[in-house]
Simulated scan of single mutants.
Amino acid sequence: MLVLVTGGAGFIGSQVVTALTAAGHGVRILDALLPAAHRTAPPVPEGMEWRQADVRDRAAVEEALRDVDAVCHQAAMVGLGKDFADAPDYVGCNDLGTAVLLAGMARAGVRRLVLAGSMVVYGEGRYECARHGIVRPGPRRGAELDAGRFEPPCPRCGEPLAPGLVDEDAPADPRNVYAATKLAQEHLAAAWARAVGGHAVSLRYHNVYGPGMPRDTPYSGVASLFRSALARGEAPRVFEDGGQRRDFVHVTDVAAANVLALSGAGEVSEGCLRAYNVGSGEPHTVGELAAALARACGGHAPVTTGEYRLGDVRHITASSRRLRDDLGWKPEVRFVDGVAEFASAALRG
């Protein structure tokens, strides 16, 4: 099978390329090498088909789709941006780019798609109130965060909530521009599948970390930012009180999920999109991540700052049961091992 991987030179995309090649698939890469994601041009694997072009370039996309059997769409602009003025860039790159790609697939007769989705489409995660059961708290407000009240209360009685694992049937509630574009990508992919009889899978990534993670760019995740601070001899700065829960999943496990989803996309009903959470199933707080990296690097203990970013959610952790049940996926890299490996890269410089 010949697979086009958009964003195939990126942190996750390059691991997907490696995993697909190891599984015996042919791979063609399309990547714009945006400066925000790539400080330097990455090396192109020997013998790999390569196209440097923006996914919004219709002619380049159509040429890259020639003879392709399936697409893994990893290309995206990520992060929260500086302010709302960045919205056109996010919508253009993520949603217009996806529309151009899907239109090209429709014309080329490519009917199999695996989309890099995101857990951000859920907004806040799953919460339960002792009195009112499952509830959905509203967006956290600046005044509450300024006062150090980081936990969202029950919207009905104001009492504390117990966070749990969110599954794919939870309603979407994107709370920033990036999240809105990731949900729009899923809607576009679903519309494409219905229109052409295609098979689409959205893999909703949780907090991905691992080798090759970009440093000190807008594409750097929190794990990379902490590691970079430690490499500079500084203490990692942890926002809020460090108690926000996330699901940190290793990039090689994410790549394996893409290979399985590609093989299983034909099992998705024709004309449908099926979403899967991709998470480790081991929730950890951001503070725990910072502390684990500091120990592994032998660096300064983390400092909790009380700072916050409007649009961030407090707790979002995944149930990946559907992915395990449908496709037989399971994470292979334990948190403690993955963090040790990730820290060692900083020690090697």
Rank of each mutant, 00 (worst) to 15 (best):
R58L: 08
V177W: 05
Y205P: 00
C297F: 13
Y205C: 03
V208G: 01
A23G: 06
G271W: 14
A41S: 13
A130H: 15
V5W: 06
A99G: 07
D57I: 11
P214T: 07
A290I: 14
T18Q: 11
A108K: 02
P218T: 12
R246V: 12
A291E: 13
W192F: 05
Y122A: 05
Y122I: 04
R140H: 00
P331M: 02
L188F: 02
R126G: 03
L34T: 11
D83W: 08
A340Y: 01
V177D: 03
A32R: 13
L80H: 09
R131N: 12
C72P: 01
R156N: 02
D67Q: 12
Y90C: 09
F248H: 15
R245P: 11
M1Q: 12
L260S: 01
E168D: 12
E46S: 15
P43Y: 08
G212I: 06
H187M: 02
F342T: 04
G264E: 00
A296V: 13
H25V: 04
P163I: 06
A170C: 10
G221Q: 14
E128L: 13
R126K: 03
S344I: 04
D146I: 01
P163V: 01
A99N: 01
E46R: 13
D54G: 14
G197P: 09
H199E: 02
T98I: 02
V78H: 05
A256C: 04
P236L: 15
M105V: 05
G117V: 05
R324L: 03
T317P: 05
R237V: 15
R28M: 08
V177M: 06
G24A: 08
L188K: 03
G8C: 09
A184Y: 05
V278A: 01
C93L: 08
R321I: 00
S319Y: 06
A256I: 00
R227A: 13
R136Q: 09
R156D: 05
A36Y: 08
A292V: 13
A37V: 10
V3I: 11
R274N: 07
Q244I: 09
D67G: 14
G92W: 07
G306I: 03
L161P: 04
G299C: 14
P139M: 02
D69I: 09
R274M: 11
D253S: 11
I12C: 06
T252M: 05
V251G: 11
D83P: 10
V91T: 11
R66L: 12
G13V: 06
A116V: 06
V254M: 07
E49H: 15
L115A: 02
L33Q: 12
A70I: 11
R66I: 07
A231Y: 13
E124T: 03
H199Q: 07
R51L: 15
G233T: 15
G233R: 14
L203P: 02
A41N: 07
G287N: 15
V303T: 11
A343K: 08
V17H: 09
G266C: 08
P152R: 10
S269I: 07
